[in-house]
Amino acid sequence: MPESSTWLHVRAAGLDLLLATRDLREVVAPLPVSAIPGGARGIQGVVMHQGEFLPVLAWDDLPGCGSPAGPVTALAVLRPRLGLPIERVVGTLGALPEPWQVPEDSESASAWSGGSGLLGDMELRLVDPDRLVALLRRLRADR
């Protein structure tokens, strides 16, 4: 079970996702993304954020992710300086739903997710920034 925090419930890549607020720098309005010529999979491009380039995640390239269900309305900026395009901010949670499932290695989303739980009949999946960054580095190395 991840350490206690508050959690931001968002919808992105056709999934309901949780982001630990301690992993977030901020949530900002979407900015035009510039694709990097010859850029690696997993990163759709960069935006200018606080005077520096911020890489923006390409959900499509991640295992276990679906296609976006709608236009991007926000950008969640993670502490490791990575922007996640968000379709909708749903709200916040004070605790993770129980029982909490740690992902099996065989699960495709285990490469970037820290686990999942059910809220009613809705499956919420936690984004683990460490796993996500490690996955992006692997994708870059594999190119």
């Binding site: 850029g39 960069v46 380039f53 992006l136």
Partner: peptide, 23 residues
């Protein structure tokens, strides 16, 4: 010139500069 963050490194690209027409 602003350098690209590590996650956005791309072979042959040193960095970028925001211009009127884009990067």
């Amino acid at each position: 010139l602003r350098s690209l963050p590590e996650l956005a490194h791309s072979p042959g690209i040193m960095g970028g500069s925001l211009q009127e027409e884009g990067i």
